[in-house]
Design a protein around this nucleic acid. Structure first.
Length: 365
DNA sequence: GTATGCTTTCGGC
DNA sequence: TTACGGCCGAAAGCATAC
């Protein structure tokens, strides 16, 4: 058994926009903004990713495209629609490279992954820099993209390390340096600490991870319960034993769409919902899974987001059950709300694998 | 008092 | 100030179970 675990976090830099730069060299040196266009008006939509040149002008993920256009009105900026199929192909190529770089591999999202290289490096952190450079060089040579890499004794610290220097960063946090690395950072950088928890901590004068680490574990347990209290205490002290593990089934699948015009009429919403349900049933068949929870997501004219969901008694694959559930949820929702909807979505979750079934005829045959 | 499960909301990219 | 996608997993809030 190696003396240390060595965990790598790889994060592709401004992924969508970087792919566009790679495939269209004439964009390089210009601000590049990739976004989702809803089709309502020419500019209606939101920014997915922007390159660092665009970010210098204040462009951010999630920003309305019209804002980004205004921020870049005096620049020769490039605005592009997302091409998810294309990005997924590149992502698969990169993930195949990364999978071969370590003993264990875990893809977190389209542009992020963890590697466990403990065995490969025999626990020797002295070889971490060479390995990190090697990973970056492989992706650079085979795909042409840059990434930011963090290497540390666990997933928690590796991810924070990768995020601390970007783009094109390589940050190594040795086991002895973990505590000093974490201490000055705000508590919100820890996994599991969101806005609410951060508020509770700040109210008690606990602003940095160091403040949290110095807190007696019993006191944290008193505030958050034993499980969370222990967990926060461990995280703040740089302790994380979670394993790098290839992910299985997705936890949820959803489809959401912006309506051509706002409405709260069932007969105007229904054709759209049927399309969303069709897409989802197709997806679950390709995954070979059944769902037990069905939900709808409604975004009203004033952009407020609401959702409703229900649990079925058992996991199913039927489109008819999905449609019936969605109909019931939407009717209930509409009876409670008077606002028109701008966007509407369907979400399914609580999956279980469907046993591969042989049809009766093939069984008999 | 804590764990678990269900539902809704949040937040990252 | 402007005005706005489509996903996903995690966080949060609550009720009930242990």
């Amino acid at each position: 058994m190696p003396p240390n675990r060595i965990i790598v976090h790889v994060d592709l830099d401004y992924f969508f926009a970087q792919i566009e730069e790679l495939e269209n060299p004439q964009y390089r040196g210009k601000p590049v903004v990739v976004g989702v266009y809803s089709g309502r008006t020419d500019e209606s939509g939101a920014v997915s990713t922007a390159n660092y040149i665009a970010r210098r002008f204040g462009v951010r993920s999630g920003m309305p495209i019209s804002w980004a256009k205004r921020a870049l009105r005096n620049e020769e900026a490039v605005f592009l629609p997302v091409n998810r199929e294309r990005y997924n192909i590149i992502s698969d190529q990169i993930m195949d490279i990364l999978r071969s770089c370590g003993d264990k591999f875990e893809q977190v999202s389209v542009d992020e992954a963890y590697l466990d290289v403990s065995e490969k490096l025999l626990g020797h952190f002295e070889r971490a820099e060479e390995l990190g450079r090697g990973i970056k060089a492989s992706i650079g040579e085979k795909v042409g993209l840059t990434c930011s890499v963090g290497i540390a004794p666990n997933k928690l610290v590796a991810k924070i390390a990768a995020n601390s220097v970007k783009p094109d960063g390589l940050t190594i946090v040795l086991p002895d340096a973990v505590v000093d690395f974490l201490r000055p950072l705000p508590v919100g950088r820890l996994y599991g600490i969101g806005k609410k928890t951060e508020e509770i901590l700040t109210a008690r004068g606990l602003r940095t991870i160091g403040d949290l680490a110095d807190q007696p574990v019993d006191q944290l347990s008193q505030i958050f319960g034993k499980t969370l209290g222990n967990y926060f205490h461990q995280s703040a002290n740089g302790i994380d034993d979670s394993e790098v593990k290839e992910r299985g089934l997705p936890k949820s699948l959803s489809r959401i769409i912006t309506l051509k015009s706002d409405t709260r009429k069932m007969d105007e919403l229904w054709p759209t919902l049927e399309i969303l349900c069709n897409d989802l049933t197709q997806k679950i068949h390709t995954y070979g899974i059944a769902f037990r929870i069905v939900g709808i997501i409604a975004i009203t004219s004033n952009m407020s987001v609401q959702s409703r969901s229900l649990s079925l008694n058992e996991a199913v694959t039927d489109k008819s059950v999905l449609l019936d559930s969605v109909e019931r949820l939407l009717k209930d929702y509409l009876s409670e709300s008077r606002q028109d909807l701008r966007r509407i979505g369907v979400r399914i979750s609580a999956f279980s694998p469907v046993a591969v079934q042989r049809s009766l005829s093939s069984f008999l045959g």
